[in-house]
């Protein structure tokens, strides 16, 4: 009996140890730091006080960046849903023998560094970039459009980075659906659209929601896209953490912002699991 208890624990121990050492312990360090103080030299002073948290909420500046981060994360998620579902559905339905190759194309961007992929937009959207160059060359415009260094270019960079996550999540979910179910629906009088709406879409929601969660959480924590593709005023919360921790060596305040972000993301994930579980979504679809 005892053997039965210890065996799974033994098998799980490498993974649990890794999660404990690489996630739980560093998060605990960050939480402890968030109560400390910063000395004028940049050194840290152990303390237990809530000044760093109070500072975050003392005016609207820091919360406004947090709100902007959540807004950008939501916009990116919606765009990824709209752009990701269609190719995933295509991969599910297609009978082509090149399906594996098409899936490989979705993964292809991962073979190139994220920074290089992001930087490449500068050459495409810049004033002298490809897009503006063609528009001016063909006489459509006289002067270049301001396509770069704004929120639109930040979201574009994020969508490019995160779209494969959405496509793959939805595709995996769709692949698990028995195709005979839709055939049964159509044989019972449903149109193709009705079969999709009543059968395929509800059954693919677990993958879609997992993709949404992944895209949202990754966007909320990103800092490279706003840094490279954003202009003045496009900073997100991770940029703020970077500036506090790296720029001013204010680890305690940077930790407090990190804990606030972690708390908000945890609430979102918890709420999602608790109230927007897939069963609930499925019921609402019915």
């Amino acid at each position: 009996m005892q053997h039965k208890i210890w065996r799974p624990l033994g098998l799980l121990s490498p993974a649990l140890s890794a999660v404990f050492l690489l996630l739980v312990v560093p998060v605990c360090f960050v939480v402890v730091y968030s109560f400390w103080l910063r000395a004028p030299t940049g050194a840290d002073i152990p303390a237990f006080q809530f000044g760093n948290y109070a500072k975050f909420f003392e005016d609207f500046f820091y919360p406004s960046i947090l709100i902007r981060t959540i807004r950008v994360a939501l916009e990116t998620t919606v765009i990824c849903v709209l752009m990701g579902y269609i190719p995933a559905y295509f991969f599910y339905k297609t009978e082509t023998k090149h399906k594996s190759f098409l899936l490989l194309l979705v993964m292809l961007p991962f073979w190139i560094s994220f920074i290089i992929r992001t930087m490449s937009w500068v050459n495409i959207l810049g004033d002298t970039g490809l897009f503006n160059h063609l528009l001016i060359k063909f006489g459509i415009l006289d002067s270049p459009l301001a396509l770069l260094y704004n929120e639109g270019s930040v979201i574009l960079g994020l969508v490019q980075y995160l779209l494969p996550f959405m496509i793959l999540n939805v595709y995996v979910s769709l692949e698990g659906i028995d195709k005979s179910l839709t055939e049964a629906a159509t044989s019972l009088g449903c149109t193709e659209w009705q079969a999709f709406k009543e059968v395929t879409l509800p059954l693919s929601l677990p993958g879609l929601s997992a993709g949404c969660l992944l895209v949202f959480v990754l966007t909320a924590g990103t800092y490279l896209s706003p840094m490279i593709l954003g202009g003045p005023g496009n900073d997100m919360i991770a940029n703020l953490i970077f500036k506090r921790v790296i720029g001013t060596l204010d680890w305690p305040f940077g930790s407090a912002i990190s804990v606030i972000l972690l708390g908000i993301l945890s609430i979102i994930v918890f709420t999602y699991n608790r109230y927007l579980g897939i069963a609930q979504i499925f019921k609402s679809m019915q």
Partner: peptide, 19 residues
């Protein structure tokens, strides 16, 4: 400059962000 770093860097971040 080092004495002003914390205060001025934060103020600058606010201006840069449009605050």
């Amino acid at each position: 400059w080092n004495a002003k770093q914390l205060e001025w860097a934060e103020k600058w971040d606010r201006i840069k962000a449009g605050g």
